[in-house]
Amino acid sequence: MAGTLASNHLGLTSWSLSLQREEKQLEASVDALLSQVADLKSSLGSFICKLENEYDRLTWPSVLDSFALLSGQLNTLNKVLKHEKTPLLRNQVIIPLVLSPDRDEELTRQTEGRVPVFSHEVVPDHLRTKPDPEVEEQEKQLTADAARIGTDAAQKQIQTLNKMCSNLLEKISKEERESESGGLRQNKQTFNPTDTNALVAAVAFGKGLSNWRPPGSSGPGQPGQPGAGALLRSSGIQQVQMTGTPSQQQSTLLSGVQMAQTGQPGKMPSGIKTNIKSASMHPYQRK
């Protein structure tokens, strides 16, 4: 026992009055804990290093990876602590044997320079097993408050909180769904293939556009052909004739209507009438 004390550079010792077997078990579990904690420490260190040095090119997935690693290591640590072979650590007592204001090189090395001196100043912080007195006070207060509330009232508050939470969750998920479907709709409906075809057909051969050429019109050069050109020409002539004799204009109008009727009995006559009305606005009339 004295040897243990002497070799312990931390100036503290852990002892057990149990059998040697138990002591061995304790040592093994402490070793396991130490290695787990060392792993955790190195991952934390590398994560902090990454955050400090690569924050400008850090990607979210890589941060998530680091978190996943830490979370896994914490889980393993918990498992080791809860393992049935691990003795209850709270039954172990650690007491400081020597406090010294002098610098302890071995301690500095073991704590990687964080704790150079094992003095009265740092020991309460490092060996504390209870919360700060203020924190303890607050906790007491809370426990007292909780005890004062009746079970019915507590139940009610729990229900209210649950209701609020579920409402909030529902709202969030609904919003999420809507924005997702909205995004999809946006993506899907920026164009319409049917419209594409209709527009291409329209510019390619005038499909769906006002077709001024009556069906079945024969080749060019035949006089009296009821084509658009004839209509245009007649309207041009009209414009000239309007200043001239009204009777001639009338006859042209009539012949124009007749031509159209023979050509296409449906739509054309009305078109011609309006055409005559708007003849003065004709963009390419003869001047």
Partner: peptide, 22 residues
């Protein structure tokens, strides 16, 4: 956008061919 011309030769009276732009 393509506009149909309602009255031959009169470009003031037009109507959009579809709800899309080519």
């Amino acid at each position: 956008k393509i506009f149909r011309i309602l009255i031959p030769g009169n470009t003031d009276s037009t109507e959009a061919l579809s709800l899309s732009y080519l």
